[in-house]
C-alpha cells in the first residue's frame, strides 16, 4: 500500500531531484565538512535523523502553524530537536556527543532542512513527509560521500583515516613513483568544483534536467 505508492519520494531525491545537485540546497555544509569521508558520513546520519523527525513534526503541525511566522516556527522546531538530542547525548553518551558537537550548528543552519519543511512538510501528511525527509537526506548523503571520498583520497591519500595509497613520508606505495597529495583538494574551492563536476556528469547523462 502506502509505501510502494510513495516510494518515488525516496528514490527521486537520490538522482533526478537530488537536494544538492538539482535543488541546490545544503551546499554550505557540503563544502564545509567533506574534507574527510568520516565527517561526511557522520553529518549524513545526523541530517537523516533530524530531517526525518522534523518533517513529521512540521507535518503534524501544518494546519495550526500561522503562515506569517512559519519560518520562525520551523527554525524553533529544528533547533529544539537538535538541542534535545545534544543534551541527552551529553548526559548518556558523552563520547558520541563530542564527536557530534561540531555538527550541531551546521545541522540547524542546513538549508535542506528548512527547504524541505517549507516545500513539502507544510503541504503533506506525516507519513509522506517522513519518506520525503529520508529520501532527501539519502540524496544529500550520496553527494557528500562521493565528494568526501575524492577529497580525502586525493587530498590526504587516506580513506576513513586509513592510508590506502602508501605513506607520503616514508615514500611507499604510489608515493615511491613520485605521486604527491594534492593539498588543494582539502580546501573549500575544490569541494565546489567537485560538486560542479557531479552536476555536469549528471546533466550530460540526462539532458531533461538542464534548465533553460
Amino acid at each position: 500500500m502506502g509505501f510502494f505508492k510513495d516510494s518515488n519520494l525516496i528514490t527521486d531525491p537520490l538522482a533526478d531531484n537530488n537536494p544538492i545537485t538539482i535543488q541546490v540546497l545544503g551546499i554550505c555544509s557540503a563544502l564545509a565538512i567533506t574534507a574527510e569521508l568520516e565527517a561526511s558520513i557522520v553529518m549524513s546520519v545526523a541530517v537523516l535523523f533530524v530531517l526525518g523527525v522534523g518533517n513529521v513534526v512540521i507535518s503534524l503541525m501544518r494546519n495550526i502553524i500561522p503562515s506569517k511566522i512559519r519560518i520562525i516556527v520551523q527554525l524553533i522546531v529544528v533547533a529544539t530537536l537538535v538541542i534535545i538530542v545534544d543534551l541527552v547525548l551529553k548526559a548518556f553518551a558523552y563520547e558520541l556527543s563530542k564527536t557530534l558537537s561540531v555538527f550541531v550548528g551546521l545541522i540547524i543552519t542546513n538549508c535542506i532542512i528548512m527547504g524541505r519543511f517549507e516545500a513539502f512538510a507544510l503541504a503533506n501528511g506525516p507519513w509522506k513527509s517522513f519518506l520525503d525527509g529520508i529520501g532527501n537526506s539519502l540524496g544529500y548523503a550520496v553527494i557528500l560521500v562521493i565528494v568526501g571520498f575524492f577529497r580525502e583520497l586525493l587530498g590526504s591519500g587516506t580513506l576513513l583515516g586509513n592510508p590506502v595509497l602508501g605513506d607520503p613520508i616514508e615514500k611507499t606505495g604510489v608515493y615511491a613513483y613520485g605521486y604527491e597529495n594534492n593539498g588543494f583538494m582539502l580546501l573549500a574551492p575544490m569541494a565546489l568544483i567537485t560538486v560542479g563536476l557531479i552536476i555536469w556528469v549528471q546533466r550530460s547523462r540526462n539532458t531533461a534536467l538542464i534548465e533553460d
Binding site: N63, P66, K68, I69, I72, I76, T80, I83, I84
Partner: peptide, 23 residues
Amino acid sequence: RTDKNSYTILFAIIMVLIVGSIL
C-alpha cells in the same frame, strides 16, 4: 483562522512556553 494577528501572537506565546519549558 490561522492568518489572524491574534491567533499568530497566541500561537507564538504558547509555542515559546512549551518549547522553553521542555528545554
